[in-house]
Design a binder for these strands. Sequence first.
RNA 1: GCGGGAAUAGCUCAGUCGGUAGAGCAUCAGCUUCCCAAGCUGAGGGUCGGGGGUUCGAAUCCCCUUUCCCGCUCCA
Length: 516
Amino acid sequence: MAQEDRFKKIIAHAKEYGFVFPSSEIYDGLSAVYDYGQNGVEMKNNIRAYWWDAMVNLNENIVGIDSAIFMHPEIWKASGHVDAFNDPLIDNKDSKKRYRADQLIEDYLDKLQGKINKEAEKASKKFGESFDREKFLGTNPRVLANRDKIDRIHGRFVKALKMDDLVELRQIIIDCEIADPESGSRNWTDVRQFNLMFDTRLGSVNESASKIYLRPETAQGIFVNFLNVQKSGRMKIPFGIAQTGKAFRNEIVARQFIMRMREFEQMEMQYFVRPGKELEWFEFWKDKRMKWHQSLGLGKEKYRFHDHDKLAHYANAATDIEFEFPIGFKEVEGIHSRTDFDLSQHQKFSGKKMQYFDNDLNESYVPYVVETSIGLDRMFLTVLAGSYEEEKLEKEGADEERVVMRIPAFLAPVKVAVLPLVKKDGLPDTARKIMDELKLDFNCQYEEKDSIGRRYRRQDAIGTPYCITIDHQTPKDETVTIRYRDTMEQERIPVKQLRDFVQEKVSPKKQLSMLG
RNA sequence: GCGGGAAUAGCUCAGUCGGUAGAGCAUCAGCUUCCCAAGCUGAGGGUCGGGGGUUCGAAUCCCCUUUCCCGCUCCA
């Protein structure tokens, strides 16, 4: 409970200090859509840049692209999204539980098959070694009745799925007297289709305009450009293509702040490898990506792998990197061994050869793919949640508290605050000069209003790692104090050294060099 | 989408039995000059989430609706 409160506080803090706002708020908001504010956009850009540096710049064999959100509609048939993102759903009116209609029918068919197997089992025990399983299955009246039933239902089921016949799907459920597995109730609503892909029209608004989708993932933009990049970049396997960009999913339920949004940003890299080598590379990227996360310094114990037991049809290995949010461990990044599924599908649907000629093997093949796919918005939330701290301060008298965002300096939205100690004696002028110097290199804020202590706290709240204070000593010896966000300690340094000093502290170079 | 709860100033909240909306903090201007937030003076800011109804009169009662939170469900 306390943890949930903490999550709420982080959301409130994000809004109050210009990180994340609900979309269209003055019109009552728009469900599961959020806007990034003045501080949020800086931090988001910094996270994206850190990922790009680590993937594209640090790896000579990885290049980036930026593909369009609109793509040829056939792509989503090839990828399986047109089928897989169309779930027929049905609700039980009594228990208020929701199920996938196709799942209910499949479970029912499985149960019938189970009955047949049991029947055979029983007979086998009874007749011992003289038992002829095939003959039994072909003659026993109970088995025959069930097999006949399975055939009939299965036939209707397949046809209904093919025709998208929702009424027939419901009729099958009624005819088979399928009950809610939990409550036993057979009081069902109509079957409804939820397509998780947004669609719109390309071209003029008329009958001939074609329906196109807003991409539900960025990965396909990479697959369809595989040949373009490989040839124009003279890439040799293994190599990777990286991309960041928006994707859209019309989630039935989207909740938990920016954890699941209808419009979100992905950072993906598809790594093309020799068939048979994919599981080695899968392990390689698991390790690399985990190191990237841990390089942020938010606490190694807050990360874990969660291997998938149930694999998607295209994958032969999959794992999630999870981060411990106040509401529990949640997926931040997925690493999948996608086999040659995607390229093969595009080869099939487009009729173009999606192959690579490997000189070392002297043969051509459809490459296998290992994917690293990370949600930028979730990453953003990771940094927020991992940085937010209500710190108890010891002070004479009452207990004091400060809210401080311990954001890694290279991700912080504002790097430096320039603060004249008081608003007189020419200190603001001196501060302005320093500000003008520094703002060419860093995102800086100048503040002269309110007491110095209050200004420090305001900077703590947005995670500014360094505050530079111009005091009465500055005009005398050209030095200022620099105050550290995390320790609240101060140091005095010459104005001349400021730029280099800050530069070294807010650059991601040190972290990146450890990843390289 | 279903069930439950919530919505009053930027934030936290008060508002009695239905009688024209209040506090603290924050914001802005001026004063004060101080190294870890809440000194002084003044000002701005709300059609009480939106729409409809009952009533002489609605923040308050009724209906609808939107958004958020919790649970269910879903999650390439």
